[in-house]
Simulated scan of single mutants.
Amino acid sequence: MAAQLAERLGLPLLEGDDLHPDSDIEKVRRGAALDAHDREDWTGRVAEALRAQPAGAVLVWPALRRSERDALRAAVPALRFAYLALSPHQAMERAAARTDQFYPPSHVGRQFEALEPPRDEPGVQVLDGTEHVDRLVAQALRWLAPAFNNA
């Protein structure tokens, strides 16, 4: 969805996993979870990458905790989040089908344990992650349109 959304908006696509330091990648490959310090450092890298795109960007990033989302909001006040709501089983199936990630699909369970869903936060659109990608992109574009029309 993110690639299609970025293309339609004419914005760069940022992949949060590409912003991990090598030490995080090795840690996860060994089967260990990232700790609060790891995630804080990673959040800082993501915030810097977003700030480096003053015209905007589409970011793929789990943003599991509110504190992480708030840190990004502090860095980029107009930031919006499209939250793809999936069950742990659905997310694990998707992760298992991907070949472009460094973490094992079993890591998805840990992510759900840490997840603080952003349902009642400002600047969040909750989308049914089981919908077809074209429908998800259309919904996100309608939601984002006012922000781009006022820019």
Rank of each mutant, 00 (worst) to 15 (best):
D18F: 05
D18W: 03
H20M: 09
P21C: 08
S23M: 01
S23K: 00
S23I: 02
S23T: 06
D24N: 15
D24S: 14
I25T: 12
I25W: 08
E26A: 12
E26Q: 09
K27R: 03
K27V: 06
R29G: 01
R30T: 04
R30W: 02
G31N: 00
G31L: 01
G31T: 01
G31Q: 00
G31F: 00
A32S: 08
A33G: 02
A33P: 00
A33Y: 01
L34T: 07
L34Q: 07
L34C: 06
D35C: 06
D35A: 09
A36V: 02
H37C: 03
H37R: 04
H37D: 12
H37N: 10
D38E: 07
D38Q: 04
D38Y: 06
D38C: 06
R39M: 05
E40S: 13
E40V: 05
D41K: 08
D41G: 13
W42S: 04
W42H: 09
W42E: 05
T43G: 10
G44T: 06
G44R: 05
G44D: 02
R45C: 10
R45E: 15
V46T: 11
V46C: 13
V46W: 07
V46Q: 06
A47F: 09
A47R: 03
E48H: 09
A49M: 10
A52S: 15
Q53F: 11
G56F: 11
A57H: 12
V58M: 12
V58C: 13
V58F: 10
L59Q: 08
L59M: 11
L59N: 09
L59W: 13
V60C: 11
V60P: 03
W61A: 15
W61T: 05
P62L: 12
P62Y: 14
P62A: 13
A63C: 14
A63H: 07
A63I: 08
L64P: 00
L64K: 00
L64H: 00
S67R: 07
E68A: 10
E68I: 08
D70W: 02
D70E: 15
A71I: 02
A71E: 01
L72Q: 01
L72M: 01
L72G: 02
L72D: 02
L72N: 03
A74F: 07
A74R: 14
A74H: 11
A74T: 15
A75M: 10
V76T: 14
V76N: 09
V76W: 11
P77L: 13
P77W: 09
P77N: 08
